[in-house]
Write a protein that binds this DNA or RNA. Sequence first.
DNA 1: GTCTATAAAGGGATAGAC
DNA 2: GTCTATCCCTTTATAGAC
Lengths: 243, 243
Amino acid sequence: MSPTASKNEEKPSTRRARGKTERYWRMRDQVIDIAVELFSKNGYASTGVADIGEAAGLARGALYYYIKSKEALLAEIHDRVMDPLLKEAAAIAALDLSFPARLRLMSESLLWQVINRHDHVWVFLHEYRQLEGEFRTLFKAKRDTFEQSIQAVLEQGQREGLLRPLDLELTKLTFLNMHNYTYQWVATKDVKVEDLSGLYCEIFLNGILTSPATQDSASAELEHGRAVLQSLRDAPAVSRTDA
Amino acid sequence: MSPTASKNEEKPSTRRARGKTERYWRMRDQVIDIAVELFSKNGYASTGVADIGEAAGLARGALYYYIKSKEALLAEIHDRVMDPLLKEAAAIAALDLSFPARLRLMSESLLWQVINRHDHVWVFLHEYRQLEGEFRTLFKAKRDTFEQSIQAVLEQGQREGLLRPLDLELTKLTFLNMHNYTYQWVATKDVKVEDLSGLYCEIFLNGILTSPATQDSASAELEHGRAVLQSLRDAPAVSRTDA
DNA sequence: GTCTATAAAGGGATAGAC
DNA sequence: GTCTATCCCTTTATAGAC
């Protein structure tokens, strides 16, 4: 699997020019990709700025032409995961879906990032505590929003009387446990997003529903939701912040 | 919650003397406890040996009288979690138990460490990749053994025809996902081991069993198993390695 | 046992030449 | 745009005085 830009990366042509050439943004993306690879492999604190430069074929001085600081680099990596997640969660919330289908789509959206952008997700889930000050605040807000969107889905299930009596916050955390820890081992396995999501949701839904879940992994509403998410992944993003 | 030694720490009097005074081992334990606290709070790579010394009231030179190296310190912290886990897993395997009760006990054993020795577990689950060479090999072997003991429990359920058709390895990983990721958020919540394990096992068992799980959290065999585990936690350990 | 001193290397970030 | 040189600080670990 390539560690470089995936389909939902911003295309240089869609960016605010901000007085920089196209080559500048291309090179900058490459630098961030290299940082993602090194941070995920060796850890953020154990990776030196010089290591990134060397891997990019740049001296430290030249590297700082593309980045503002090491920590800003880490923050941008976080946004590269959080922003697509929030976008997809909002799209799922906007659809008219049954409770099981909506939960299943949230699961697939999250696992899509975990599997197809594994290095990014590793950094995002493993190194977030290295962010400080404003970086930390911003990241925490985004993350809280995302987790709340999961709880909102569970609340739909509860409103519709489908759930056994449960503490919804702990139930949300259990759902996140299952999905988030996947980054620790998934690189060594050959699993598809739909298959792993199918297993997780089979266990989780059977675990919380009053009546057994039906495995309609090819239902019309699920297929439609998948198409919506896929279209988001092909489309370019809008804005960007400096690293 | 105090970051210092818990009940299943070795008592100084039971250690091999190895020519050191009792005070030496007491001080050494204190140093390790401080390292656990700093590593879990700030990260292994971001914590300097001098930070540990300062928190312990020792200069760097004096600190190295108690530890062999920073990495050996990290390795010892791992053993402080892995060794009790392996001991309890072996004790559970030796008991005559139904499949649901055995799984529930494994869950409680693991969550006991996650909740009651949270700082240790944080370091153990978060920093294991910083171990290299022999340290890494030894740790990986222990961890594989533990995970295999979970899969063995699932195999009992399958042999007894209680499970729906499932990939047992992925099912084991799902079980571990639920439990292991708990260290990320449990410090901010006030949950009891039995309660959280009850939620996880309710969801997980209902998720994998052919017929619904009964919530017999106070059954005789479960109570007996809990008593066995508790006795292990009160008893002292036997050997130790140098850090 | 604990200290100070020091080794030998590496950290992030900046200035200014080219 | 990229380089070298440099600043200033910190790193792990050891040596040897007390």
